[in-house]
Design a protein around this nucleic acid. Structure first.
Lengths: 202, 202
DNA sequence: TTTTTTTATTGAACAGTGTTCAATAACTTT
DNA sequence: AAAGTTATTGAACACTGTTCAATAAAAAAA
C-alpha cells in the first residue's frame, strides 16, 4: 500500500513542477506568447509529458486561474477585520486595484483571457463566484446601515465590479495612453476616488 | 499621368479588397483564430500578397481598429442634437454599451486585444483620443451647469469610461456567468442604470 | 531472480501559424 | 520588340498545440 502512496506523491510532485514552470513562463510572457514547448524546456522535460499530467494548455491555464483567485481572495479577506461595511467596501476596491497592478498577468488570466468554452460550469468559476459573493454580501451590509437604498444588490454589485474591472482592464491592456500627462497609478487611484466620491453621496 | 493614377486606384482597390476579407474573417473568428492564410484564401489570393499591401498582421488589425472607432464615433455624434449635456452623457453610455453588444468583435479589437508595442503613438490612437475628448467635453459642460462640482474632469471622465468599459469587457469575455439567473442584457442595462443613479445624486 | 505487466517519458510526426523571398507573370516605358 | 517596373505566387523557415508509437523505468508476478 505504501508504494502506491509514494507513487501518487511523485505524481503530485511532477504536477506542481509543471505548474511552477508554467506559472513562471505564463507570468513572464503572457498567455498567448507561452508555448507548451516553452513550459517543457523550462523544467527540462519533453513537451509530450505535459499531456500526461494535463489535458491541454487550457487545463494548465485553468489551474493558474484558480490560483489567482485564491490569491485575490486571501488579500480581500484580510479586510474582514474592518468593522464598518462601507469602509470595508471602499478598501476592497483599493485592494482589487492593487492586486491588478501587482499581478497584471494573473489579472489577465482571471478576467480577460478568452476562456475555453466549457469553463463557466467548471470548478474554476466556483471560486470566482466566491469573490462575487463577498462583494454582494458587503453591499448588503451597507444597505442594512442605510446606504444604497432602493438599489438591487446584484445589479449594484455588478456595477461596482464593472467599474473596478474597467479601471484595471484599461490598465492591463494599455488603453490609458489617451489620458496624457498622467501616470497609470494616478489615473487608477484618482479615478477610483472619483467613484468613491459618488458612492459617498448615495 | 493617367496611367499612374489608375495604378494607384487599383492598389487602393486591392487594399480594400484585403480589408473586406480581413474584416469578415476577423469578426467571424476573432483576432487570434484568424490567420493570414485565412484572409488570403477568403479573397482568393496567395498569403504572400498580403505582405505587399500591409506590413504584417497587426497592420491590418490597426486599420480595422480605426474603422471601429469611426463607427463608434459616428453613433456617438448623433447625440450632439441632445441639448442638455447630462442627458447627452447618459445617452452616450447607452450608445456605448449597445455598440459593444452589437459589435463584440470590433469592441475587442478596439479595447481589449493586445496592441502591438508601437501602436500608442500611431495614428490609430489619435481617433481613440477623439472619443475621449468627446466624453471629457461633455463632462465639462455638465460641470458648467453645476453637476459633478469639485471633480477633476480628466479623472472623472476616466472613471466613467472605466465603468462603461468594465460592463462591456465582462460581457465580451464571458465573465458575467457568476451573476446567475440574469441575462447579459439585463445585467448590462440595469448595472449601467445603477451607475446613472449614482451620477444623478452628484 | 527472472519474466511479465504497468507506468512514465521521449521524440518524431501532423497540421497548423506568421513571415520572407527568389522566381515569375503582368504590365509600362523605352 | 526589349528593357524595366510592379504585382503575384508558392515554396521555405521557424514556430505553434497536440498525438502517438516506441522505449525506458519501475512494480508485480512467476
Amino acid at each position: 500500500m505504501g508504494i502506491a502512496e509514494r507513487k501518487q506523491e511523485e505524481k503530485q510532485e511532477m504536477t506542481t513542477r509543471i505548474l511552477n514552470g508554467a506559472r513562471k513562463v505564463f507570468l513572464e510572457k503572457g498567455y498567448e506568447q507561452t508555448s507548451m514547448r516553452n513550459i517543457a524546456s523550462e523544467i527540462n522535460y519533453s513537451p509530450g509529458l505535459l499531456y500526461f499530467y494535463f489535458k491541454d494548455k487550457s487545463d494548465i491555464f485553468h489551474e493558474l486561474h484558480r490560483e489567482g483567485f485564491r490569491l485575490l481572495l486571501s488579500q480581500l479577506k484580510v479586510l474582514n477585520k474592518v468593522a464598518d461595511p462601507f469602509e470595508r467596501l471602499k478598501a476592497m476596491g483599493h485592494v482589487f486595484i492593487e492586486f491588478a497592478q501587482n499581478n497584471k498577468d494573473y489579472y489577465n488570466l482571471m478576467f480577460i483571457v478568452e476562456v475555453p468554452a466549457k469553463m463557466p460550469e467548471s470548478s474554476g468559476f466556483m471560486i470566482a463566484q466566491e469573490a462575487i459573493s463577498l462583494l454582494a454580501s458587503t453591499v448588503k451590509e451597507c444597505q442594512q446601515k442605510g446606504r444604497f437604498k432602493d438599489m438591487d444588490v446584484e445589479y449594484f454589485s455588478f456595477m461596482i465590479l464593472s467599474t473596478l474591472h474597467g479601471i484595471c482592464a484599461l490598465f492591463c491592456k494599455d488603453r490609458t495612453a489617451s489620458f496624457a500627462n498622467k501616470t497609470n497609478e494616478e489615473l487608477m487611484l484618482h479615478g477610483y476616488e472619483c467613484f468613491v466620491a459618488l458612492l459617498e453621496k448615495s
